[in-house]
Design a protein around this nucleic acid. Structure first.
Length: 812
DNA sequence: AGTTAGAGAGTTTTT
DNA sequence: CTCTCTAACT
């Protein structure tokens, strides 16, 4: 390997190889092809087929009949999918509009579109049926809405709307909404809809379990409310289409005829409803190609049914199963570690990943023992800086955690070090409060009957319209069976309201009237700005002194910018309810911090995997609630984590971790014992602050490891770990330095601590001056109290007194 | 109607 | 511990 990082030539020639392999791709891929493959290649192979390995090529060329492509991590899954579509188009088997290609996320759909565009040019526009399950369902439903009791203009509830609606229903039933929370019911509802169960279909036991047997009633009420609101939630989008297909055979036939070829990405993530949906379509036409990896099924908890992929051959008669096992991403050590680990799972279809990517100087997978989560963050921070100083790009490094609370410590540490990082995941753009508020304003203008939107912003910003007023409006609306806004306008003509709320309500309604009139007089982006300004919404955030406020204002600007790509406000609203992940094309070099779940599908040269402790990973709750299945899903998560690494996978476990505020000593994860000793090294924590030198976990921990022993609690390794655990907690009771120092540092983990950051502190005097008002991305607004070099002591309005590096604040 | 103290919960996430 | 939500205050 000559180039350590970031070399990605896949953009120059997407046909040459799969994924973003870091080395200049040598010929071996092609040379290794069998005789048959070479014979096939000899026969005037079109450009797009060259460079595929024999299995990939088989998956592309087996166009007729059901095909299951078992694509292991890094084996070129997306490439096969897109090439297959290109192949179908190029050979004239179908026109773009006759191919159904389904993904789970908008991101995946977008990427697929882009890659197909590379093959067939501008023709992607014709791929009308490439999209997420949900967007395709919306498309079908808009056409046939009346057949399932909706109007074509139905609106789509997001999770937030859904919860608020459920809450109203629970209250209307006279139930205690604390004992029976809307959130809990939303979860149960989701489970039912994932299994394609309508109010009548839910098992009696489950119906009884919620709210003293009112589960079914609530479900019915909820669906009734939705139909009055002419709305559908995400689950309904699929369920309505299934109902449509089942009750209208001619409509089903129409789609069966239309879709000559069907492709499903990430098949291991499909739930029962999605499976039924696909089955209905496939009844008329066997050309279904599902691509997935049972070993990467990590969404069982939200309804994904691994069984769908395990049963594929049974469900689709005459199915051909093709395994993609040649990995183009990781070193042989990383693959060996991941493969050995995942082999502990039962009930897999089974694949053996292999690679030619083998060099003597490749790093082993490392396992590092640290004292506590603080040392963990410090060690990883140091290793990142060390790699960076050797010329590695931060973009090629990621910290993958099991649970999001782990992120904080890394953020804190990286802020202290002045290390650029970005957190992936977290609240998505369209889920942010300010975006939802703004959208609610737009919805009120475009859809005057949108009660949920009106409720959301009627008193945001505060305009003196509280519960009392709203109750009156609700009463009128219910009595007259009219939308809230209409009810409100009737109310202000009466004496029911006191002058203050009456005027406030009148002003608000007049505003909406005016904006509605302006709707076709000006550009929708311009109007959007006017709405946010005149409603006082932007002003509200300008007045807000919290650290998030400026970001929220930026987001609002970003929202309006993104509206520009749409024809009209209505067009924008339609799109937005399903797609609202902005592509954060951030050019800066930064380490990524994210959960293992959100790392699926990504790859990095170096991957840091902290927190491999029993109870955290595998997570206790997964074990408690789902038993063996839960453990296996956790193991798949571990597999996903390791296989994200191209060159270096570094695992960590802490002996002590603070959970819910109190310190607990922990036991190394059983997954560590399931790694193959030959490919793993026991590393020392780079910093020795903790007073715990990593002793006790010599390489011997992996001796006489038995891969066929399923109960790893009985392995010698695990028992040694147990003993080590005991001795280390004794150590901490004896006043271990690490424990103490961890405690002290807790008080100001975000501040600069002398020597720890010495290397990132320069002698250049700061150009800030005492007393100046500044803004910090994490702490918000504050005033400078004192300055030493480039270290500033700042009294933050919200966060208190902190020491920070000057480059992390800006004047305000 | 707006502010504040106390309770309660605290994996994982997309549409 | 730390965040969020609700109920009771002012």
């Amino acid at each position: 390997m000559t180039d350590p990082d970031g070399y990605d030539d896949s953009f120059d020639d997407p046909f040459q190889h799969v994924g973003t392999r870091s080395e200049p791709a040598p010929a071996p891929v092609r040379q290794q092809g069998g005789i048959a493959a070479r014979a096939m290649a000899a026969r005037r192979a079109p450009d797009y087929l060259t460079g595929l390995n024999p299995e990939q090529r088989l998956a592309v060329e087996t166009t007729e009949g059901p095909v299951l492509v078992l694509a292991g991590a890094g084996t070129g899954k997306t490439r096969v999918l897109t090439t297959r579509i290109a192949h179908i188009l190029a050979t004239g088997l179908a026109r773009p509009s006759e191919i159904l290609a389904v993904t789970f996320t908008n991101k995946a759909a977008r990427e697929m579109k882009e890659r197909i565009a590379g093959f067939v040019g501008g023709n992607v526009e014709g791929m009308a049926w490439l999209g997420t399950f949900h967007s395709i369902c919306v498309k079908i439903l808009r056409k046939h809405a009346e057949l399932v009791g909706l109007k074509s203009s139905f609106s789509i509830l997001d999770t937030d709307d859904q919860i608020r609606l459920i809450k109203q229903i629970i209250q209307a039933e006279g139930l205690d909404d604390k004992r029976w929370t809307a959130k809990a019911f939303a979860g149960i509802l989701d489970g039912w809809k994932n299994r394609a169960l309508g109010p009548k279909d839910i098992p009696e036991g489950e119906a009884r379990a919620f709210a003293n047997g009112k589960g079914r009633k609530l479900y019915q009420e909820y669906q009734e409310r939705l139909s009055i609101l002419n709305a559908a939630d995400f689950g309904d989008l699929l369920l309505h289409v299934i109902t449509l297909f089942k009750t209208q055979p001619d409509v089903l036939k129409e789609y069966q005829r239309r879709f000559r070829y069907m492709l499903v990405d990430e098949y291991q993530d499909t739930n029962i409803a999605q499976y039924l949906w696909l089955r209905l379509l496939a009844q008329g036409n066997p050309n279904v190609c599902c691509v997935g990896d049972d070993d990467q099924s990590i969404y069982g908890w939200r309804g994904a049914e691994v069984d769908n992929i395990l049963r594929f051959e049974h469900d689709f008669k005459g199915a051909v199963v093709i395994r993609l096992e040649r990995n183009y991403r990781s070193t042989s050590h990383i693959l060996a570690a991941a493969s050995h680990l995942i082999a502990f799972n039962e009930g897999r279809l089974g694949k053996t990943l292999f690679t030619d990517f083998e060099e003597p100087d490749h790093d082993l997978v490392s396992v590092t023992s640290v004292w506590d989560s603080e040392e963990e963050a410090r060690t990883i921070g140091d290793e990142i800086e060390s790699l960076q100083s050797r010329g590695h790009s931060l973009n090629q490094m990621a910290v993958l955690v099991r649970a999001s609370f782990q992120m904080r410590e890394f953020e804190d540490r990286f802020v202290t070090l002045g290390l650029n990082y970005r957190v992936i995941g977290g609240p998505r753009f369209y889920e942010r409060m300010e975006i939802r508020d703004a959208m609610a304003y737009f919805r009120c203008v475009a859809q005057p009957a949108d009660d949920l939107a009106f409720e959301r912003i009627v008193n945001t910003p505060k305009r003196g319209l509280g519960d009392a007023t709203l109750k009156l409006v609700h009463g009128v609306a219910r009595a007259e069976r009219i939308p809230l806004m209409q009810a409100a306008s009737q109310l202000i003509d009466t004496e029911e309201l006191k002058p203050k709320p009456r005027n406030a309500l009148k002003t608000a309604l007049d505003n909406f009237e005016r904006w509605r009139r302006q709707l076709d007089q000006m550009k929708h982006t311009e109007l959007a700005e006017i709405i946010l300004d005149e409603s006082g919404y932007t002003e509200m955030w300008r007045q807000d002194r919290s650290a998030e406020a400026p970001g929220r204002l930026d987001n609002l600007k970003e929202l309006i910018r993104s509206m520009d790509e749409f024809e009209s406000l209505a067009g924008f609203l339609e799109h937005i309810s399903l797609v609202m992940d902005r592509d954060s094309a951030d050019a800066t070099d930064a380490v990524s911090i994210m959960t293992l779940h959100s790392a699926k599908g990504l790859e990095f040269d170096t991957v840091f995997l902290p927190g491999w402790e029993e109870g955290l990973f595998p997570h206790q709750r997964a074990l408690d609630e789902s038993g063996r299945a839960g453990l296996e899903e956790e193991r798949r998560l571990a597999y996903v984590g390791i296989t994200r690494a191209k060159k270096r996978a570094k695992l960590y476990f802490a002996s002590n971790r603070r959970i819910h505020g109190l310190w607990q000593s922990t036991v190394p994860s059983r997954f560590l014992d399931e790694l193959p000793p030959d490919h793993v090294e026991i590393a020392e924590a780079s910093s020795n602050y903790g007073g715990y030198g990593g002793g006790g976990y010599g390489p011997s921990r992996f001796d006489s490891h038995d891969p066929f022993d399923k109960g790893s609690y009985s392995t010698p390794g695990w028992q040694r770990a147990q003993r080590a655990r005991q001795s280390s907690s004794g150590f901490s009771d004896g006043g271990g330095r690490g424990y103490q120092s961890a405690r002290q540092k807790r008080q100001g983990p975000l501040t600069i601590e002398g020597e720890l950051v010495a290397k990132s502190v320069s002698d250049t005097p700061s150009d800030f001056s005492v007393g100046e008002r500044v803004f910090h991305i994490k702490f918000g607004y504050g005033a400078i109290k004192s300055i030493e070099g480039n270290k500033l002591t700042i009294d933050f309005e919200k966060a208190g007194v902190k020491k920070v590096i000057d480059s992390f604040v800006e004047r305000h």
